[in-house]
Simulated assay, not measured.
Amino acid sequence: MSKPVEETIAQPSAVAAPKKKQPYPFWLGGVAATIAASITHPLDLTKVRMQATGDKGMINSLRKTVRTAGVRGLFDGISGTWLRQMTYSICRFWAYDESKKLLGANEKSPAWQLALAGCMAGGIAGFVGNPGEILMVRMQGDFAKPPEKRLNYKNSIDGLIRMVREEGWSSLGRGVGPNVFRAILMNASQLASYDFFKNELLKTGYFEDNIYVHTTASFAAGTVATTVCSPADVIKSRIMSASGAEGKSAIHMLRTSFKNEGPMFMFKGWVPAWTRLQPTTILIFITLEQLKRVVDWTRGDL
């Protein structure tokens, strides 16, 4: 006797609900940025010295540094760079993710929405990271100055203590306006454009979410960010590298520089800035993507 039809039909197995992906640790971006900045520090050092002290040409500035301070001099102010990345960069990546949540955005959202999230993140991070930014700029530019004008900070912590003791608490806010403005531009152009370019590449159907896409998207993001941020970056470096009363007014610094050098002073140091920011941007996002994969692996999500 044949079995009833309903008994011969296989019962559908229960489909497990898709596992909700947990958010990544907020500090991943800061770690990735610190690793990248440590590798590219000599290029950042050269950019700051060209902007703040008038060194001519990237290669000449590098040679001058090696000639006067040795190869070790290429890493002058590295502790200031670490302090800056572990304050500013941790804050900006965290704030960017939180801003996207607040706006209901994700990596596939329109460019304007990603840029708005980047602006929000930049405003917060630029303010929080301002003391670290000052220390980084001062320590990088110190050895390019005449001996009698050097600050000679031992490290970033010593620099913070001396700044407060010698110049008051208000010194920690020096250049905060240009720095916040520059941070807004940076995050709107770098973080947002990386998400935008990455999504556009994946939408074509010719690419997978791998290191090739990460490299291409970060290369494009680095070029956009360098060009957009150059004017604010030059003004910020000149104000922060000054001490005493000479660097208090961004408007005065802008007028003086415009009068003496013309409008193209705003793009002074673009080549070393691009040369530094390009590998930094690529290293940041590749490192960040790999750190995310490590986190996924430890959670069993791969």
Score class of each variant (00 low, 15 high):
Arg63Ala: 14
Lys268Ile: 01
Arg84Glu: 09
Lys236Asp: 03
Arg299Leu: 09
Thr8Pro: 02
Leu74Tyr: 04
Ser79Gln: 10
Ala273His: 05
Lys3Trp: 11
Ser218Val: 03
Ser2Glu: 09
Met1Glu: 14
Asp158Ala: 12
Lys154Leu: 12
Lys100Leu: 13
Ile157Met: 12
Leu74Gly: 06
Ala10Ile: 13
His252Lys: 11
Phe143His: 09
Ala245Asn: 11
Lys20Ser: 11
Ser237Glu: 00
Met186Gly: 02
Leu172Gln: 11
Ser170Ile: 07
Ala33Ser: 14
Ala217Ser: 06
Lys268Val: 02
Ala115Cys: 15
Ala188Val: 04
Gly29Glu: 03
Pro178Asp: 02
Ala125Glu: 04
Arg63Leu: 15
Val164Asn: 11
Phe143Cys: 02
Val15Ala: 07
Ala221Arg: 04
Gly54Lys: 07
Gly262Pro: 07
Ser230His: 05
Ala37Cys: 07
Gly269Cys: 02
Thr226Gln: 08
Gly104Ala: 08
Asn199Gly: 01
Ser218Glu: 01
Pro23Cys: 04
Cys119Asp: 00
Lys64Phe: 00
Ser170Cys: 08
Tyr96Gly: 03
Lys198Gln: 11
Trp297Thr: 12
Thr204Cys: 10
His41Thr: 14
Phe285Gln: 12
Arg238Lys: 15
Gly244Ala: 15
Arg299Pro: 10
Lys19Asp: 11
Ser38Ala: 15
Ala121Ile: 02
Gln22Glu: 13
Leu291His: 04
Val176Ser: 12
Gly244His: 13
Asp296Leu: 08
Met50Phe: 06
Ala10Phe: 10
Lys236Leu: 12
Gly30Phe: 00
Ser61Tyr: 01
Met253Gly: 00
Gly30Ala: 05
Phe181Thr: 06
Ala16Arg: 11
Arg49Phe: 07
Phe143Lys: 15
Ile235Arg: 00
Trp270Glu: 03
Trp297Ser: 07
Gly122Tyr: 05
Val224Ala: 14
Arg49His: 08
Pro23Glu: 01
Phe258Gln: 01
Gly30Pro: 04
Ala121Tyr: 01
Leu185Trp: 04
Gly173Pro: 09
Ala250Tyr: 13
Arg67Lys: 12
Arg67Ser: 13
Trp94Glu: 03
Met136Val: 01
Arg238Asp: 02
Lys203Leu: 00
Ile9Val: 15
Gly70Pro: 14
Ala115Pro: 10
Ala10His: 12
Val228Arg: 07
Phe197Ser: 03
Trp274Gln: 07
Arg293Gly: 02
Pro4Cys: 13
Thr46Gln: 00
Lys145Met: 13
Phe181Asn: 00
Arg63Val: 14
Asp296Phe: 06
Tyr153Lys: 09
Ser241Trp: 01
Glu289Leu: 06
Thr81Asp: 05
Gly126Trp: 10
Leu191Asp: 00
Gly57Ile: 13
Arg174His: 13
Met163Cys: 11
Gly175His: 09
Gln51His: 01
Trp112His: 00
Ala10Asn: 11
Val176Asp: 07
Asp301Gly: 00
Ser237Gln: 03
Asn179Gln: 05
Ala95Gly: 06
Gln190Ile: 04
Gln51Tyr: 02
Ile9Met: 08
